[in-house]
């Protein structure tokens, strides 16, 4: 197997952080590990063509693999367009859990935008680059996601100001 200088070290030192990103996207540790390894294999194939820090590249592969992923599993989530009304949600469940459940109901690309913005702290332009979409689409996808999550509208301003 042809070696790729730095690949093993990258996996050893940085893949754990990427596993957390994968988990926020897939919401299941086993699936996250699977997604991460799938992305690492794809990155290995292109390793020699990556300039500079490989982490942004691998992160991009993780996210794009997730948003178009169907190869290994098709037995999980079925995103729904609408959330139940707040009043009908089981009473007594903590806000954080409700929000986590709501994140899981977002369409994949919207979930990716939210995670990249509010976990990875990427700017609108950086998210556009990662997902290969326009800044306007990032903005609209984030707006829709936040509306589904019933997040304070001021968050949208935070995104625009980034």
């Amino acid at each position: 197997m042809t070696d790729r200088p730095g690949f093993d070290e990258f996996v050893a030192t940085r893949s754990h952080a990427l596993l957390r990103l994968s988990y926020l996207l897939t919401r299941d540790w086993a699936t996250a590990e699977d997604l991460l390894q799938t992305a690492l294999v794809r990155s290995w194939q292109a390793w020699g063509r990556i300039d500079g820090d490989p982490e942004p590249y691998v992160r991009t592969v993780v996210v794009n693999t997730f948003t178009s992923w169907w190869r290994r599993r098709w037995n999980g989530e079925v995103p729904t367009a609408e959330l139940p009304e707040s009043a009908s949600v089981a009473a007594g469940v903590e806000q954080r859990d409700l929000l986590w459940q709501a994140l899981g109901r977002l369409p994949r690309k919207q979930r990716a935008v939210v995670v990249l913005r509010f976990y990875e702290d990427l700017s609108e332009a950086e998210i556009a680059t990662v997902l290969g979409i326009s800044r306007g689409t990032v903005k609209s996808q984030c707006s829709k996601a936040l509306a589904h999550l019933r997040v304070d509208a001021s968050l949208e301003n935070a995104l625009e100001g980034s």
Binding site: R20, L24, R96, W100, V114, F118
Partner: peptide, 23 residues
């Protein structure tokens, strides 16, 4: 929901990620 709650929710759910020494 506030932005802080959203960030806390994302951060809380990745605490204690399982290790994989043979990745």
């Amino acid at each position: 929901t506030t932005e802080q709650q959203l960030r806390e929710t994302l951060g809380a759910h990745v605490e204690g990620a399982p290790g994989n020494s043979d990745r």
